[in-house]
Design a protein around this nucleic acid. Structure first.
Lengths: 134, 134
DNA sequence: TTACAACTTGGAGCCAACTCCAAGTCAATA
DNA sequence: TATTGACTTGGAGTTGGCTCCAAGTTGTAA
């Protein structure tokens, strides 16, 4: 059965990524060179959609395009268990997200404490936790 | 008792924000105009330090300088309970951070599932959750 | 008194990530 | 056949957030 395809306009609406940005991502090599019709127009497949979904997911977690790039080079339809490198990349990424969540949790704890205890806005040294040398 | 003050160099080391960046933040009005000695050199106080700590905290949670700006306009040493506007801003901010954490948690769930069940890298529609129109 | 270090300012440059635009091609339609 | 609309490309412009630099001032130390 033949897979459904999308024009760039449809694909932009589908994914929420603008046409300009799709072309830009292709130009910088983040997304693979899209398939073209005879007239040179791009068209996109379900696998392209899956790839963009992964892109958006990684982006939402705060990764730069540079960091996302290696994920975009992977086949979207392989069993993860068969490709150790994907497993490792995912584990790596998982650790990153967990780290970011720990940061956010720390911040939430501080805010919550301040809201409940009649305190000042200022942070005590121990609440700030930057990497500055003391 | 007289409060201790810092030169810009000391203050940069203390907070982990570079001298250039401190001057830049002042120039764009993110930080208030720093006090000057007779010779025109900036110096910083404990309250300045508190303000920068708050800045770094908000930044770490992914806020833009634009979003951080209103917080920098507030006095650092007032009791939060006395100023409803601060309470409201903090509550607002708390909701933002919680939202971001929910996003990250969703992403973690997807990754974890994929790592355990011999799946493909591709995301199912329900796992991606962008705001694109269907 | 001269040299040096620590600052000052204004402005230029830089990188990431878009966003916009002009000029051109192509297919379908009036 | 002329027009319209959806696309193409290359390249310029924009925004956010710094980062760097040159030229000038001031206070201390040799």
């Amino acid at each position: 059965m033949k897979q459904r395809t999308y024009t760039i306009k449809q694909f932009a609406a589908l994914t929420g990524v603008s046409e300009d940005t799709l072309r830009y991502y292709e130009k910088i090599g983040l997304l693979p060179f899209a398939m073209r019709k005879n007239n040179g127009h791009r068209y996109y497949s379900a696998e392209d959609e899956e790839r963009v979904m992964v892109l958006l997911c990684l982006k939402k977690a705060g990764m730069s395009l540079e960091e996302i790039s290696p994920f975009m080079k992977l086949p979207m339809d392989e069993d993860i268990q068969n490709i150790p490198v994907i497993r490792d990349m995912l584990l790596d990424y998982k650790r990153k997200v967990e780290g970011q969540m720990r940061e956010l949790q720390k911040i939430l704890d501080v805010i919550t404490a301040k809201l409940h205890s009649g305190e000042k806005l200022a942070l005590r040294r121990s609440e700030s936790n930057t990497e500055a040398k003391s």
